Simulated scan of single mutants.
Amino acid sequence: MTLSFSNIALIGKYQSPDVAESVLLIARFLRERGLEVVIEQGTASSIGNAEGFPVATYEEIAENADLAVVVGGDGTMLHTARRLADRAVPLAGVNLGRLGFLTDIARKDVLLRLGEILDGKYCEESRSMLDAEILRGGQRIFQTLALNDVVVNRRELGRMIEFDLSIDGEFVYTQRSDGMIVSTPTGSTAYALSANGPILHPSVGGIALVPLCPHALTARLVTLPDSCCIEI
């Protein structure tokens, strides 16, 4: 189903004045198309002069925006996805630097591609996310969403940890290693790829478990349905 966009938020790379030219160029273009445009609060602060465009917090964007245009790199897209996931705000990524897996609109093509999106000429792609929490003494002390991966390791580099792995309440094994990457299909081309993990197509409903330097003669990568509850 093709969505219609009328209220669009612009979100730039955190504390980067380099996004100013692109953000304001996009903002003017969208205003000329008769659309409501807001600039995320931190982005507006970074660029200095927002040229009178309204400024909004992430909470306000999640509540009101039909589309968020993310200007920066994959890191900016990952951060934005976490902040707006609860309201499932569609994201479009504009890449300002190196190769972007998630921010795939080139800066030189940004107005052309955004025009096509506004005209309904786009393909929508859904990505799964991980819901992660840290428990201590049976109490949840931290919770977050992750579009790429969740990594369990020691703060000190080069020190092994020993942990138990359970899936859906069933004990699987005890492992000594540098840690474990729990990766979504999106994250399978990031840190998990560097650790020789499998590449999962974004449409695959799976989770990859990738051990980090396991101290074992036999240690296998495991791919699970994304409905599983994983305990480490």
Rank of each mutant, 00 (worst) to 15 (best):
L96C: 03
A65D: 07
S227D: 08
L96W: 04
V182T: 04
L67N: 01
R155C: 07
G120H: 09
R176N: 11
L91T: 14
N49A: 01
T144I: 06
G34E: 09
A195D: 03
I232T: 04
P17Q: 13
G34L: 06
R140T: 15
A68M: 04
V222M: 12
V204N: 10
A190E: 13
E40R: 05
G34K: 11
A92Y: 13
H215D: 05
E125W: 06
V37W: 05
R98D: 00
V151L: 01
S4M: 13
E231T: 00
T223A: 14
E133I: 11
G197L: 05
N153Q: 15
N95G: 08
R136P: 07
T103G: 02
L10K: 05
S6E: 13
P54G: 05
M77P: 15
L209K: 12
L224T: 03
V94F: 12
G73E: 02
V71R: 00
S177E: 12
L67C: 01
I181D: 10
T2V: 11
Y58C: 02
Q139V: 11
E231P: 00
D109C: 02
I141M: 14
C229E: 13
R33W: 07
T189L: 12
T57L: 10
I11R: 07
D66F: 08
E36H: 09
F5E: 00
S16A: 11
L67H: 03
E51Q: 03
L135D: 09
N64M: 03
R176T: 11
I161D: 02
E170G: 07
R33Y: 02
V94D: 06
C229T: 15
G12K: 05
V55Q: 10
Q175V: 14
G100A: 08
G42T: 08
I26G: 04
A216H: 00
G115S: 05
A20D: 01
R155Q: 14
D131G: 13
E125K: 04
L67F: 06
V71M: 09
P90D: 04
Q41K: 13
F142D: 12
L165Y: 02
G93N: 08
L24P: 04
M77E: 08
A146V: 10
T43K: 07
F5V: 05
M180C: 06
T186G: 09
P90H: 02
C229A: 15
D164T: 11
L135N: 10
L221S: 02
P90A: 01
D164F: 09
A219Q: 01
R107T: 12
T80Y: 03
T184W: 14
E124L: 14
S194C: 01
D226S: 01
Y58Q: 09
Q175F: 10
T218P: 10
P185S: 10
V110P: 06
G48Y: 08
A27F: 07
Q175C: 14
V89P: 06
